[in-house]
Nucleic acid binder design. Structure first.
Length: 295
DNA sequence: AAAAGCCCCTGGACGC
DNA sequence: TGCGTCCAGGGGCTTT
């Protein structure tokens, strides 16, 4: 799954072929993904024009001329494949390796746009989903309400994070993974941000807050680290894991700059350190950190 | 209310 | 080659 930088990369890839275009055909090759498709999903999409393709946290939203909005989540293994009308160029947008030998097996949804482009959604694990909602349903929808701030907007401040962390008993890893506080971080970028902020993931979220509730120096470092790592990742086109065959520019490049994620046993990159990166488990997810640089 | 588990699903890597 | 086990970028739902 794609975390915020990957979803933003997907949005940038899809926007040129979808914005301003109509759905001329919609094919669902199974009745559900994580959830059943909305009733008459394909029928309601057909003929609708995409007025804008936006992102909220890890969600993609296609705003439609009909007043409805197509809400899409990529789950862990969702990706989009674009085939342009002239069929000369196929670009893979997303994060998961194409199934060797059976590329169609997990192609669950196919959009044909009025410009002739075909947009295929595949998702082997089917943790992703697509829902068609009215404008008033969006804000109150259980997936969207309660979602925290966008980490790349002006709302992400040390004051905000300190206030959110105040009185919490969870550790930093769980606090940052919780989408109700900051929306869009996932396992990779939480690990990377905590490394950059020199904070051990098992520390309590309370280290971000002074006794009066204000932000600590650690909190200031963390906020800067979150902004930096997300911005750098988006600039690099996101991270692509388990797919080293694509060299056409669609695959992300940020994974080569990981300091800790997936680097268990490898030396810390900080100059003068070189300690082996450690892996541990928190809430059933892997956590990577440098035992020397992160305290 | 907050925090911690459990579960959804498929496939790849690894050990025997 | 064929198991069995563990792991994977998320998050909704249920239980404590």
């Amino acid at each position: 799954m794609p975390e915020l930088p990957e979803v933003e990369t997907v949005r940038c890839g899809l926007a040129p072929v979808m914005e301003g275009e109509k759905f001329s055909d919609v094919l669902c090759r199974r009745p559900d993904l994580r959830f059943p498709f909305s009733p008459k999903f394909a029928e309601r999409l057909r003929g609708a024009r995409v007025t804008a393709l936006t992102r909220r946290a890890k969600y993609l939203l296609a705003h439609l001329s009909t007043g409805e909005t197509l809400l899409m989540h990529l789950g862990m293994s969702g990706r989009f494949l674009i085939q342009l009308a002239d069929n000369l160029e196929a670009r893979q947008i997303g994060t998961y390796e194409q199934e060797i030998g059976s590329p169609e097996k997990h192609a669950h949804v196919v959009f044909t746009m009025s410009n002739g482009a075909q947009v295929t959604y595949s998702d082997p694990r089917r943790f992703g989903y697509m829902l068609l909602l009215n404008a008033d349903e969006i804000a109150s929808h259980r997936m969207m309400k309660g979602l925290g701030i966008e980490p790349l907007g002006n709302e992400l401040t040390a004051d905000y994070v300190a206030a959110r962390a105040f009185g919490r008993t969870t550790d930093l890893k769980a606090f940052l993974m919780d989408q109700r506080h900051i929306a869009g971080l996932g396992n990779i970028y939480v690990c990377e941000a905590l490394f950059r902020a020199r904070l051990r993931p098992t520390r309590k979220a309370a280290v971000l807050t002074k006794s009066r509730g204000g932000p600590t120096a650690a909190c200031e470092r963390l906020v800067g680290a979150i902004r930096d790592v997300l911005r750098e990742a988006i600039d690099a086109g996101g991270s692509t894991l388990r797919d080293y065959r694509q060299a056409n520019g669609a695959a992300g490049a940020f994974q080569s700059t990981f300091y800790v994620y997936g680097r268990e046993g490898e030396p810390c990159h900080n100059t003068g350190c070189g300690r082996a990166i450690r892996r541990t488990s928190q809430a059933g997810r892997s956590t990577f950190y440098c035992p020397s640089c992160q305290r």
